[in-house]
Write a protein that binds this DNA or RNA. Structure first.
Lengths: 332, 332
DNA sequence: TGCCGCGCCTGCAACGTTATAAAACGGTGG
DNA sequence: CCACCGTTTTATAACGTTGCAGGCGCGGCA
């Protein structure tokens, strides 16, 4: 039903090749042909068939982005960074989220392989390194947001989670806190690093660190964790949460229970998402430049695709953590 | 570089057609061939080239979803509904957001046209009806989430915004409120309907309705609106916000200013997103079944695509609004 | 034996695009 | 008038896939 180059060619009284040249090598055409083809394209509303282009070219200019939970604020900022770079460089971006379902994550990778995406940016949920190395052998490059455990064929955009944890710990110590509870899932790689950083900061002091294990990353997770925290025999004087949304959930539950933040309990989050300063008590947090991380991931991948000879830079330095002090931990 | 049917055929000692039949008409193959092809596919890691399939088939089994702001909670729920139905029916979904930029919205439509998506589900920002009718003439169907202003070729999944506004207004009257302020952009279609519903509910009573014009839909919008509200000479006793995030922003600003919710000011939101019950003072709101709306939009579109002869149902009844009472308006 | 039907398989063409090589064109100089 | 040149246009083939028409071998039936 839609018009093809042949239709345009017929309408313009030229050959299909000329139409193709109009689109891809305009400089070789005579002014006369240029004008006739232009008019015919406009008249027929011709739009090149991307599938045919890709087939012909062997691969299209498209990359894919696979995230855990597209609707979490951190990921939406990250994806804006990816989107912007991708668009600037004239590539198409296919987007999908795995909804924290490892099986769905694999299906998404399959789908992008079938669509012959040239590269994949992924914030991985399960163990994807072997699959990504397999894809690499088939010519599909990928970049992991976070640590790539010693897989040199895969790009990596790491963040200094351990350093972030240390910053949080030191800040809590400096503001006089001694009973710190960490909320998160110690089995998840990034979360574990943040906890380790916290422990490194408190080692050798009289502060003690306990852990409430929760594996989610939403406000609901924080509300649930706070219930457990309120039932504990001795209340902590500080909470360090795996991310900002969990921290905000904890804050909400504490305020509802009549506990003052920061007087009774200080709270530190992680990420510095847009919601952090908007919490009722603005949240002290560790800033992760999500937008910049997204941009870097995209440009690393695109650079690799556009300069196939150069390998990924061996070890990019991780993005540095930065402490942002707000009201939830009292005055600095 | 990646394996093609021909490679598989050679490896299995059969013809390309047999490999194709294995994939598309397995029932015609002998057990012997089935096994040999299966083994060859596995050995080579063959993945069918989706571009070639689409080219051959004229169009692929793919639809597109275009949203204003993918990272707003309401849209993420909507898109989950769309995703689920799409996946259940074996279609692929391409996803994009227009970031509240009408130009970007157009570019996304262009991109999906080039990729020959069979249909589009869109929550429109600008005026897209003419463009969608043009696409319809080229065989690409679409469904608008929200009202389709008398364009019978375009599907529509409407919601009863006016009724929702009325419910909110009546509830505020019943709980004794008289000075109601509406926060939102009266120029936006859906928002305008909600305001009209509010006015219909208060007409003929001694309650008065004023409007603070704000065009955003985030917490930041609510914080900004609350500043203006606090400066007003006479403080209202109720706020009806265009959506939940704005309502939560207003609530936060009021609480920070020491104003009690709901004693001094009642607040009603719109949508009933997951954040609504998680606000410090859980939010009374008008429930919009975003997930169900997404499912309906997707199944309307897919039904249309799979049964080309039947037209879109003339006028689907709008989804009904439902009042959800929580603490932000006091006891009922 | 000759013919048919059946089950299974294969060759061919076509989808829309574009790079390549070749051809046509218009003009110059010998 | 022809060989030659640069410019512009064209025919052709190929990318990977699949529907279709036809082919092959085998068994059954007249």
């Amino acid at each position: 039903m839609p018009a093809s180059v042949k239709d345009v060619a017929a309408a313009a009284g030229v050959s299909a090749s000329t139409v193709s040249n109009y689109l891809n090598h305009p400089e070789v055409l005579s002014a006369r042909s240029t004008e006739r083809v232009r008019a015919a394209i406009e008249r027929l509303g011709y739009v090149p068939n991307e599938s045919a282009r890709q087939l012909r070219a062997g691969a299209g200019k498209a990359i894919a982005l696979i995230l855990l939970d597209a609707w979490l604020p951190y990921f939406s900022e990250l994806s804006r960074g990816v989107e912007d770079v991708t668009r600037e460089d004239g590539w198409s971006l296919f987007f999908s989220n795995s909804g924290r379902d490892a099986q769905q994550e694999q299906r998404n990778i399959d789908m992008f392989e079938a669509h012959r995406a040239r590269g994949i940016i992924i914030y991985p949920l399960g163990e994807v390194t072997p699959r990504l190395e397999q894809l690499n052998r088939r010519g599909i490059r990928s970049v992991i947001v976070g640590p790539a455990h010693g897989a040199p064929s895969i790009g990596s955009v790491p963040f200094d989670d351990h350093g972030g944890g240390m910053l949080a710990g030191r800040h809590l110590l400096e503001t006089g806190r001694r009973r710190i509870v960490f909320i998160g899932d110690p089995a998840a790689a990034q979360t574990a690093d943040r906890l380790a950083g916290l422990r490194a900061a408190t080692a050798g002091t009289d502060a003690e660190v306990s852990v409430i294990e929760e594996s989610g990353f939403t406000m609901t997770t924080g509300l649930r964790a706070a219930e457990r925290l309120l039932q504990a025999p001795q209340r902590p004087d500080a909470v360090f949460a795996a991310n900002d949304m969990v921290a905000i959930g904890v804050q909400t539950a504490l305020l509802r229970a009549g506990i003052s933040v920061p007087d009774d309990v200080a709270i530190v989050g992680f990420d510095d998402v847009v919601e952090a300063p908007q919490a009722l008590v603005p949240l002290t947090t560790i800033r992760q430049p999500a937008y910049e991380i997204g941009r870097t991931a995209a440009s690393t991948l695109l650079h690799r695709l556009e300069h196939p000879s150069e390998p990924f830079p061996a070890a990019a330095p991780p993005f540095a953590a930065e402490l942002v002090v707000r009201a939830s931990t009292g005055r600095a």
